[in-house]
Measured scan of single mutants.
Amino acid sequence: AVSDRLIGRKSVVMEAISPQNSGLVKVDGETWRATSGTVLDVGEEVSVKAIEGVKLVVEKLE
Rank of each mutant, 00 (worst) to 15 (best):
M14F: 09
K55A: 13
G29I: 05
L56A: 03
I7D: 05
P19E: 05
A50V: 05
V13Y: 01
E52M: 12
L6I: 06
D28G: 08
E62W: 12
E30D: 08
V54Q: 14
R5N: 09
I51A: 05
V57M: 06
V58Q: 00
E15F: 06
I51V: 13
K49E: 06
D41K: 13
V54R: 12
V46C: 15
G8W: 00
S18W: 06
K60I: 06
G23R: 00
R33P: 15
V57A: 05
E59F: 07
G8T: 03
E45K: 09
V25W: 00
Q20C: 15
R5S: 10
T38D: 15
R5T: 09
K49I: 15
L24E: 04
D28W: 06
G29P: 01
M14H: 07
N21Y: 13
E52T: 08
D28K: 03
T35Q: 06
A16M: 11
E44M: 11
K26D: 09
G23H: 02
G23F: 03
V58P: 01
S36G: 05
V57T: 05
P19K: 04
V12H: 06
S3A: 13
I7K: 05
L61F: 10
V58D: 02
R5D: 10
R5G: 09
D4W: 10
E59S: 07
K26V: 13
G23C: 04
S36T: 02
G37I: 12
L56W: 00
K26F: 13
G43C: 08
G29W: 04
L6M: 07
A50K: 08
A34P: 01
S11T: 13
G43M: 03
V25S: 01
L40M: 08
E45L: 14
K60Y: 06
Q20S: 12
Q20N: 13
G37S: 15
V42A: 07
P19D: 04
A34W: 02
L40T: 02
G53I: 03
P19A: 06
T35E: 07
R5V: 07
S47C: 15
K26Q: 12
V2W: 13
S11N: 04
S47M: 15
K10N: 09
R33L: 14
T38N: 10
S11W: 04
V25H: 00
S36I: 00
R5F: 08
N21P: 02
S18P: 01
E45G: 05
E30W: 08
E52V: 13
I17K: 00
D41C: 14
K26A: 10
E59G: 08
V46E: 02
E15C: 12
M14Q: 07
K55P: 01
A34L: 00
E62Y: 13
V46T: 04
V42I: 10
A16R: 14
R5P: 07
K60P: 10
W32V: 02
L6R: 04
E52N: 10
D41G: 11
W32C: 04
S36D: 03
V25R: 00
S36A: 11
D4M: 10
D28S: 07
G37P: 11
K26L: 15
E15N: 06
T35R: 05
L56C: 03
K60N: 04
A1N: 13
R9M: 15
G37H: 14
K26Y: 14
V54A: 14
V48G: 00
